[in-house]
Design a protein around this nucleic acid. Structure first.
Length: 359
DNA sequence: TCTGGGGTCCTAGGACCC
DNA sequence: TCTGGGGTCCTAGGACCC
């Protein structure tokens, strides 16, 4: 009874993570506009992974084509994506979080995680975490505090950079009520547009919308789910059960569109190998395969096929190559993707949301 | 201005069965 | 000639996230 601490959800999010990692090992880049994306060549087809705050001041941000970024900042520093370096930095950050006494850590990506804690002063705990991460990794982060996962996640942006912000049932609508629904995690451009056709434009309007109305437009699960996002409701307990991948894939956008059948087949074979390596590393059988093809300029088709459980690389390869046969040979190919899905073990964590499996 | 790569989950519709 | 009701499985497509 002496313990008056209560359970809180913290959302820890590194500031400009990828750019920050690059600046750490290239100290001469401090204060410069740094743009990380693709192979670091702004004349190629690729997009920005992360831009430093200096680059963002010029209007460059994630998802923007590198060509456009180069036009906006001709003398920016362009760097290639170095996934192993970011994975290593990420593991240091996550280890720091897990070392926190009593913390439950649920990783969401390279640069963010939910942390469940019991504390009387969540702001103090958040700042202790920020200090610990900075000390061990020299990386700055921001922390959102919430009484649910959704509220903690939405709070983080309000604290950025290098800050802390708290969102609870009490202040949720005061802070976010007048904002567009697009600002919410899980509401993208398409859904916010469809919501607008129902007369729902703000977070407060979404929070007040009836499940029945939302279900009629978006389906029995997604409709009510969007309503709960508007209220910030949902899970309040951080779940650190290990995540089990559903499948693995590779996809490639060609610098020049492919038109030759043999070139397409060779590209597919080249992409299958690393997928099979990923799957072999998990030691689980393949139960489905898929193929994605983008016909230039921008029409995407997918083909999927269930297969009897197998660990035989030749069988999986043959199944995918059979899908390749369905590509229309007379059309130019801009993108090719191959995928394999694995059998799920008993007791694996269920996905809870459409946004991302596992939270 | 021209749009990456790796994931996850939901919905609609057709096939098929009883 | 007109044609039920419920259920499951599968495929294709769409939407979102980092």
């Amino acid at each position: 009874m002496a313990d008056s601490a209560t359970a809180w959800v913290l959302h820890v999010d590194l500031d400009q993570f990828i750019a920050a990692v690059e600046v750490l090992r290239h100290p001469e880049l401090v204060g410069k506009p740094v743009v990380v994306g693709g192979r670091g060549d702004p004349t190629k087809r690729a997009v920005v992974s992360t831009a430093s705050y200096e680059a963002r001041a010029f209007g460059v941000g994630s998802g923007m084509p590198l060509r456009i970024a180069a036009r906006k900042i001709p003398d920016a520093v362009f760097l290639p994506v170095d996934a192993p370096a970011y994975t290593a930095a990420s593991e240091e950050v996550m280890a720091t979080l897990r070392a926190f006494p009593g913390a439950t850590v649920q990783v969401l990506g390279w640069d963010e995680a939910f942390v469940g804690v019991r504390t009387v002063d969540p702001e103090a705990t958040a700042n202790e975490i920020r200090a610990a991460v900075l000390k061990r990794t020299r990386l700055h982060c921001s922390v959102g505090i919430g009484d649910t996962l959704v509220r903690a996640k939405n709070a983080t942006d309000l604290g950025k950079p290098r800050g802390v912000f708290r969102l609870t049932r009490e202040n949720w609508l005061d802070v976010l009520g007048d904002r567009p629904t697009r600002d919410l995690w899980g509401i993208g451009p398409k859904i916010s547009q469809r919501l607008a056709t129902l007369g729902i434009r703000t977070v407060a309007e979404l929070a007040a919308a009836e499940d029945q109305v939302l279900a009629a437009e978006f389906g029995p699960k997604m409709g009510p789910w969007y309503g709960s996002l508007g209220r910030g409701d949902g899970a309040a307990v951080v779940d650190d059960t290990p995540w089990v991948a559903r499948g693995h894939s590779r996809e490639t956008t060609f610098q020049q569109d492919l038109t030759e059948r043999t070139a397409i087949e060779q590209a597919a074979r080249d992409m299958i190998a690393p997928v099979l390596d990923d799957i072999a590393a998990e030691g689980r059988p393949v139960v489905g395969v898929g193929l994605k093809v983008r016909y230039a300029p921008f029409t995407t088709k997918t083909f999927v096929h269930k297969v009897a459980a197998t660990t035989d690389r030749a069988v999986v390869t043959a199944e995918i190559m059979a899908l390749v046969e369905r590509i229309e040979p007379e059309r130019a190919i801009r993108l090719l993707g191959v995928r394999a899905d694995m059998a799920m073990p008993d007791g694996a964590r269920e996905g809870h949301t459409p946004t991302r499996g596992g939270w």
